[in-house]
């Protein structure tokens, strides 16, 4: 059995705005094992980024506040440690890769300086050790001519190359966990493939656990062992990648998978969209947040919020009707 590296328990992060309380993350729980890759998927605004920033305690306060929960990482509750301790954990034991690398790189420092700075700070290396290690890291992420590229500034790199630099920086302190928030969303599909393959290789090589956040269900099918699906600030389904893609049991997950055209599928007459829009997080409907858009809605759904229910090994779903739905799905695929 792999050891649990991260345990998120009932995490709630709310934003207190003039429009009301935005329940961006509203009681989510999940675990990540050592060396495992977990994907968090869901449409924009469902709370993926805020949940990641909450783990790192990087949510802007005000207006944001982590109002409840625990984040157990290597035996410590990150929500309880002091700021100095948190700073040393960040970038040391856990690191983050963002969607737009340009905003997380300092435009006036060379790439080399930005990497050596963290190494000197977190790893107590001297200048020449840090330089040597920086060159090694940059080479490792597949940047040709590593030695001389270290002298370049961020704007001299393409989007894909900058993301490689970000990965090099994230790896620089041998973290146990890398959180990648839409790491390839801004990149073209061939570059996206390069970056994901690279991240997978490196994670395997160093036994690093990863959380990959994405709105694109396809992206993670190949790389994640387990998948967490979010909707309106809550987790609505979790399972192995195999279970989530082959046997989705929440109507939302099912809807998402059915609404995208697939490259390997013969053309359908028309797509099956999920009707309607995601709810306003300030003014959530009572009961299940997906109920207003759900084709399987019944009375209970609009009254009681479903909790995640375990219905098979490592597969949980927050839907009052998931058992019936299994039957409905089979019936639909037969017809």
């Amino acid at each position: 059995m792999a050891r649990t590296l991260l345990e998120v328990d009932n995490l709630k992060t709310h934003f207190f705005t003039s429009d009301g309380v935005v329940k961006a993350v509203d009681g989510i729980s999940y675990t990540v094992d050592e060396g495992e890759t977990l994907a968090i998927v869901g449409e924009s605004g469902c709370g993926k980024s805020v949940s990641a920033l909450s783990l790192m305690r990087l949510v802007a306060d005000p207006p944001g506040k982590i109002v409840d929960g625990r984040v157990m990482f290597e035996g410590q509750d990150l929500l309880q440690v002091d700021n100095a301790e948190m700073r040393s954990i960040r970038g040391n034991r856990m690191a983050m890769v963002f969607q737009e690398p340009m905003t997380s790189l300092n435009p006036v420092l060379t790439i080399g300086r930005q990497i050596t700075e963290t190494l000197e700070l977190h790893q107590n290396m001297n200048k020449s050790q840090a330089r040597e290690r920086a060159e090694e890291l940059v080479r490792m992420v597949g940047i040709a001519d590593a030695g001389s590229r270290l002298k370049d500034y961020p704007h001299q790199f393409s989007g894909g190359m900058r993301q490689r630099v970000m990965i090099a920086m994230a790896l620089s302190c041998n973290p146990r966990l890398i959180i990648a928030d839409e790491p390839t969303t801004a990149l073209d599909v061939t570059i996206q493939a390069q970056i994901l393959e690279l991240m997978q290789d490196l994670a395997q090589q160093f036994g690093t656990a990863m959380i990959i956040i994405t709105h694109n269900l396809g992206v993670v099918a190949r790389y994640a062992q387990r998948v967490v699906v979010m909707y309106a600030g809550k987790i609505i389904e979790t399972g192995t990648a195999q279970e989530i893609y082959r046997n989705p049991s929440h109507p939302y997950t099912l809807g998402l998978l059915k609404s995208v055209p697939r490259l390997d599928e013969v053309r359908k007459v028309s797509l099956d969209p999920i009707e309607g829009l995601p709810p306003d997080l300030v003014d959530l409907p009572p009961g299940c947040s997906f109920a207003p858009r759900c084709p399987y809605v019944y009375e209970r759904c609009t009254q009681e919020t479903p909790v995640l229910m375990v219905h098979s090994d490592a597969h949980t779903t927050a839907c009052w009707r998931h058992e019936e739905l299994q039957g409905l799905k089979t019936a639909a695929s037969v017809s």
């Binding site: 599909v189 061939t190 996206q192 493939a193 694109n216 269900l217 396809g218 992206v219 993670v220 099918a221 190949r222 990648a241 195999q242 893609y245 082959r246 998978l257 995208v260 697939r262 490259l263 390997d264």
Partner: peptide
């Protein structure tokens, strides 16, 4: 060919 092969398919079994 490269472009098509890079497009992810939402199915781990097919992907493998």
């Amino acid at each position: 060919r490269a472009l098509l092969s890079a497009v992810p398919i939402p199915d781990p079994v097919v992907e493998a």
